[in-house]
Design a protein around this nucleic acid. Structure first.
Lengths: 221, 221
DNA sequence: CCACGGGCTAAACGCGCGTATAGCATCCTA
DNA sequence: TAGGATGCTATACGCGCGTTTAGCCCGTGG
């Protein structure tokens, strides 16, 4: 039987190299020879162990998912953007890589993306419900959708990091950018952004009007 | 000289086909022969007119940017998520395509991505400052970063639409998903999510502690 | 009427990359 | 010690795709 006990074997080195490359460059841009070079093996061995590039990705998906779920279970619970991002910035390189891998998977709509998203949304929803129950969070008209929104904001910050960092005048995504993003986000989560509920009511009315097919979609009257 | 007057020419058909393919499948996954087939021309003509695949992308970038900026100038001003998304859902297919193209460009960190993001963030920031000045929006500790956050949320909703729609139990991103996402977002923008400012203060304190190198990053004490 | 030039096509070239094949070393088993 | 399985490499095959080339069609000017 193959040496499937744990790490340090060549299979694991290939898998870790693949995770790093997929996370950094995406699945398509990465070629097997680069992965093999990083792992210090030949290109043929990758196929020998994993069968194909797609199978290799599946193995990476499984490994990252299992690692992240385990970490989320006993480490901390990522509720909003600030938790996920604080973890992301403060933890060792391996964890950063795993999160970036997951973001890539979602971005490229990998088969495993649904599992990633579902897991995070479920966890986020659970925390929201607990917070609402104990009074630390406001009730929401749609807790599930709010959980999706939380996950969305967290992942998007990582996903579109480079251009957004440049929009803030920084060369690349680093702790300074993170800090500048976390504070307004928490202010938004704490006080909201609008001074009153006029936009909310207006949007509700606009939506109902748009739902009514007898009305034109023109809204400025 | 080539027929560079305006549209309806083959150059424009190729460019539009390329925009559609790049927006839907991304730059790398799209091959020139597919673009040529959609445009009803041969593959060689694409190169003949644009020189290379990268030059073609640049032409698409320019065209989409010019179209979107013109539209944003005289049509409406995308302030928060709800405005961009309402535009996105209610407007004709062409506009949807352009927005999706822009999201792809940012996602793939195209050279033009910085221009796209800067334009949107500038516009968003301007609206925020106006809203704060006239009292319809709350003051922020970092208006620029808040503008980035707004753009981020808007784009991310489109960017990661498929897995997020599935997380809400829908097959694909459509009006129902949009509605479920807009309401919690507006509630968040109106009331915030936390019941009090304890998380905000805690995060501020945690950040200052993490900034101090004499302190360990352990935060649960 | 003829040549010329640009829009356009079909076919081919070259290369990168995923994958298959053949062979070598090593280690376990009998 | 023979023999086979396993880890691994080097090399080659095949294909997809960006790009190039040669040439056709056709309108235009002399």
């Amino acid at each position: 039987m193959c040496s499937a006990q744990s790490d340090l074997t060549a299979q694991a080195k290939i898998r870790n190299a693949a995770i790093a490359h997929f996370a950094r460059d995406g699945f398509q841009k990465t070629n097997l020879r680069a992965i093999a070079a990083t792992a210090g093996v030949s290109a043929g061995l990758v196929i020998h162990h994993f069968g194909s590039k797609d199978k290799l990705r599946s193995a990476c998906d499984d490994h990252v998912l299992r690692t992240l779920v385990r970490r989320a279970r006993d480490d901390a619970r990522p509720a909003g953007m600030q938790d996920v991002l604080r973890e992301f910035m403060s933890n060792p390189e391996e964890y950063r890589l795993q999160v970036q891998y997951m973001v890539r998977a979602i971005e490229e709509d990998t088969p495993a993306a649904a599992t990633f998203v579902d897991t995070m949304v479920d966890e986020s929803e659970e925390i929201l419900r607990a917070g609402i129950a104990d009074g630390s969070m406001r009730p929401s008209s749609d807790v599930r959708a709010l959980a999706v929104l939380n996950v969305l904001i967290s992942l998007a910050t990582l996903n579109m990091a480079p251009p957004l960092a440049r929009a803030l005048g920084h060369e690349r995504f680093g702790p300074e950018v993170l800090r500048r993003m976390v504070l307004p986000t928490l202010e938004l989560y704490t006080h909201g952004m609008y001074a009153d509920d006029a936009p909310l009511k207006a949007a509700q009315a606009a939506w109902e009007a748009a739902q009514d097919p007898s009305n034109s979609p023109n809204k400025d009257e």
